[in-house]
Design a protein around this nucleic acid. Sequence first.
DNA 1: GTGAAAGCGCTAACAC
DNA 2: GTGTTAGCGCTTTCAC
Lengths: 355, 355
Amino acid sequence: MRRENPSQRRSASAVSIRDVAQRAGVSPGSVSNVLNGKRRRDDPIGRAVLEAVKALDYRPNAIASSLRRAESRVIGLVIPDFQNPFFAELVAELERCAEETGYRIVATSSRESADVESREIRELLGWRVAGLFLAPTAGSTYGREHLADQDVPSVIVDRVFEKDLIDGVGVDNAEATEAVMRELIELGHRRILVAYFDDAVSNVAERLDGVRRAAMRRDGPLHVDYLACGPTVESALAAFEKHFDANPVPTAIFCLFNTATLAAYSITRKRGLEAGRDVALVGFDDSAWLAHMTPPIAAIVQPVQVIARRAWSMLMGRIGGGLGPARTERVSCRFERRGTMTPPRNGGMEAGRRK
Amino acid sequence: MRRENPSQRRSASAVSIRDVAQRAGVSPGSVSNVLNGKRRRDDPIGRAVLEAVKALDYRPNAIASSLRRAESRVIGLVIPDFQNPFFAELVAELERCAEETGYRIVATSSRESADVESREIRELLGWRVAGLFLAPTAGSTYGREHLADQDVPSVIVDRVFEKDLIDGVGVDNAEATEAVMRELIELGHRRILVAYFDDAVSNVAERLDGVRRAAMRRDGPLHVDYLACGPTVESALAAFEKHFDANPVPTAIFCLFNTATLAAYSITRKRGLEAGRDVALVGFDDSAWLAHMTPPIAAIVQPVQVIARRAWSMLMGRIGGGLGPARTERVSCRFERRGTMTPPRNGGMEAGRRK
DNA sequence: GTGAAAGCGCTAACAC
DNA sequence: GTGTTAGCGCTTTCAC
């Protein structure tokens, strides 16, 4: 019998399974069974339970349920930033995967801070999530090292390392940029400006590697400038301004991340150059606006949905007890050539004047 | 003493507060007190506890803790879509508010489905969140009706209704569009195309109202076309194509939501019109790319951070026991005029030919 | 089947 | 202070 211990506070409005049982004239266990489909609902007891549930507006307490079951159908997800369209789409797609499988996603952001990231991971582990996706922030090592120790199945997404201790899914960054770079060279470009973010982020570092590989393979005159642009459109604009003031105009601009692409488009127009005519322009990562410019801007497209579904099935494999060493999977990018993937105006070096 | 009941499964690796207590030679209660800062940590017992925590890699079980405390520091958030930049920024800002206050946000999306929305709300209530933010999807009534019955503090964001049963925070949609519309008229525009989404969404309906108010106030010749554009850039493009084929070119285009702005920009350029010279262009909702076009595109900017912070403090007020009738707060939009807020090329009706 | 009862991990009351 | 203990709401055995 339940003792009415006044010290154990209980919010007046909260109705528990015992209240339902009492009203239906059955035991709490039976209520639980009816509600969890372990018992038929279309007999006197079943109906009485459902009636009582409705009358009392009973709402099962998921916290108590998880505690007792010692398992949750919740998957944690830590991304650097909700405002990055890549991660926004990733969340959306993983939510869809979760829905199909009877799980739910709890998404949080690290706001590009390694500290916040590790706090969030710790918090999610505290909630005993069934699994964890992590898109590590720049320079975070805590997350992966820490997760490798845990017995919680985890998958690293996007910013993967080859030979990690944890499973991971990313794109073939280097292959994609190498291919585009070679294509630019074949088109005749000999002065190419490559805009990157910061090589502390593994995927941007890989993209740079691909570019360098293509550049090295070319024997003959080729001038490639590498420009660190920082995180925002504004920082990228400033970097471009400075570069353009001090250097000959390139015949092609290759942006290795999305904010730089917008900055490059902006600066070229400001300087009276038209992308696709006076200068070729390619970006890594697609955005809605790119395809709607005139001419539309070429972009390397990351198949976010494919990434999400691969990551999901890797995680499900581990949750299902899959053992074996950690694997890193690579998904291929698609190159949308569009209107700005054009040859140089005068067959070779910079537009306007020769070096 | 703990009974070793083999039927109560317990994952081998899970270390509980009792294990820590045993190792430290103290009681579970003391461990709890040390960990929750209710007891000094720098005496023999405190140190022993911390040592045991470290040695066993103990991780407090947040589920058990919340069950016992019967309160959680978790706030639910249901938005229609993570990929909409407005909501992405909203999540980010609410996360910041939560962090400052010792709460955490659990964000989920309804994927613009009223069914999913009500499922998500139910689920969050099942987890006994301390409060709930809801940005209702088009045509959902369940959410708000349902929430009004609950004793969980809730705040509606963005798509608010005047005179709701629940607190809400939105922007002054009608005032903002009315002001812009009047400004367009004052500049001399007499043929204006207004692109809207669908008036089932309360905020877009309000924006339309503002436009109509301004149009009615004007006495004299004025032609306003209203074009329903649907949700995506593609649907908006198709609507624009059809409209442009059958009607004189407007001297101004006013887009009441973000995807239409991109479509309008795209179609005008495709038809050889330059926004800011041949046609004025204004969008509701800012996006990064708008300010970086040449000329930059005028936009009504929703102060997402202000909205988030108002919503946060309303919710905190209710959680803190604040009573009283539901209130709907309105935040003012900012109008960024930029380069496409220009007078018509030839002082009046459509560009090109007269009606 | 069905009800009684134990106990998930934790915290808060209460004796000592 | 500190340890003991009850119990949050639920599920799951176990005896009937």
